[in-house]
Design a protein around this nucleic acid. Structure first.
Lengths: 251, 251
DNA sequence: CGATACTTTGACGAATATCAATCGCAGTGG
DNA sequence: CCACTGCGATTGATATTCGTCAAAGTATCG
């Protein structure tokens, strides 16, 4: 729960943003780049386990993930938890809080995390003067909706094995697309308890389900992470194929 | 599957839009009203059971529900179906299709349905010249996301009884907020098969679960509909309270 | 009147949860 | 260095929830 979290002055200039260099992100115009550079107020560094946002918060800020992993979740009163989605570099955090009064979900860091901080107050200026960026924000919100649709289908209608295969394949795809697959084999930074809370299953049943995937040679479970050995095998078990994502916006 | 569906020339002038009179929708400026009136290309009338959009479509259009009920869903290859959300008057349909290449979900009419048709091509003009409306679109997308978050929590972590109570309370709330509660007791236009596909349960188990809610005096099941007898009783079983929704945009 | 779609019910089986341990590893303090 | 602690992973036994199968009842509609 308690962990290091601190805001620091801007360190990464937007003009040399390491993410923007990746070919999956759409290029900015000079005007857009200037605006975003001004929009950005600093960075937030958070250690694993740190709570970034909490359900009920009224946040002054919006964030973009610059590096690291995090996850969004909700809980019921008695503590049952449901993970809603994972956040990787390029993902926007806290748009809901900027539009409704209070955050309806919580966000927690999974790995050491760096977030770019934006001021919610200035969001309307973005809409007034940068329709391209405004369009991008809607695009990002619609993409999140698409992902949630697929998760809902998964939790509602896929078997435990299909669900687990879908999730791990999905996470691998997200990692790949956020530029984390340079060095060959990727390790997803998740615990089995976290996977269980994403799949809507108990920890015990999740363990037994992951074991089946491991026995099929599709994954290998490590200390607190999951190595993907056979991505297309996972997709095949899940009955799912990722979209070939085209150019993607981010802020 | 096959059913009546036809587009007709504009009949309801936006300036006298019956929805806009409801106090839950935010007022337009004159310029916004002019734009939307031009943006609108006509209306679509659909009988119950009609397919409005299908997964994989490339739709030229965006829609707003003017009257009636519909639902969004996805299916797996073997036919398993998951209902994602319901659509009531004021809801936007097809924004995803306007931003990504293909629709990722299907939409079907539940009752006689009237949709306002907008042209996807002209969406960018909206962003360029009407930042207020652009902001509204993002707001609507973020609200859909909030709803999906709650559904995911429900399907993943609530028991069958809690889930059913949540869903029916939620639908009652949506009906109320879209101005359908004038005449006292509302009948939700759903079948048990549809509820089952929303909750992620089998029809048989759904039937037995709804029976329990009926035995508690919270609902009454009718021919193909559900009458809500005790809304706060449902919320209590579900462990959920609706947000007091403030002013709401629509297009 | 038959056809169809929706609802209801009981019996049974499969999927998943809960309970209760145990094991291994990393960090911590003596 | 070592005992201790806590978290995560694992396992087997048992209980519960939920799905499937089969059948029948009921309303609507042409």
């Amino acid at each position: 729960m308690a962990s290091e979290m601190r805001a620091v002055p801007v360190r990464v200039q937007c003009s040399v943003c390491p993410l923007r260099k990746l070919r999956q992100f759409r290029p900015f115009t000079d005007e857009e780049l200037d605006f975003v550079a001004q929009f950005k107020r600093g960075e937030l560094l958070a250690a694993p386990g740190t709570s970034i946002l909490t359900e009920g918060d009224r946040s002054e800020h919006l964030y973009t993930v610059l590096s690291g992993w995090a996850f969004r979740y909700k809980t019921l009163e008695d503590g049952r938890r449901q993970v809603l989605n994972f956040l990787v570099p390029g993902d926007l955090v806290g748009l809901q809080g900027a539009l409704t009064a209070e955050m309806q979900h919580s966000v927690e860091a999974l790995t050491p995390l760096v977030l770019c901080i934006f001021e919610r107050r200035r969001l309307f200026g973005l809409y007034q003067h940068h329709s391209g960026l405004a369009f991008d924000l809607t695009w990002l919100a619609a993409r999140e909706e698409t992902i949630l649709d697929e998760h809902l289908l998964s939790v509602g209608r896929r078997s435990a094995l299909e669900r687990a295969a879908y999730l791990l394949g999905f996470l691998h795809e997200r990692a790949r697309f956020s530029g984390q697959l340079e060095n060959g084999n990727l390790i997803l930074p998740v615990t089995q308890a976290l996977v269980a809370d994403t799949l809507g299953l108990s920890i015990v049943h999740t363990n037994k389900t992951l074991r089946k995937l491991a026995d099929k040679g599709l994954i290998r479970w490590l200390d607190r992470g999951c190595e993907i050995l056979d991505k297309s095998g996972l997709f095949s078990v899940a009955g799912w194929e990722p979209e070939d994502a085209l150019l993607r916006p981010f802020i």
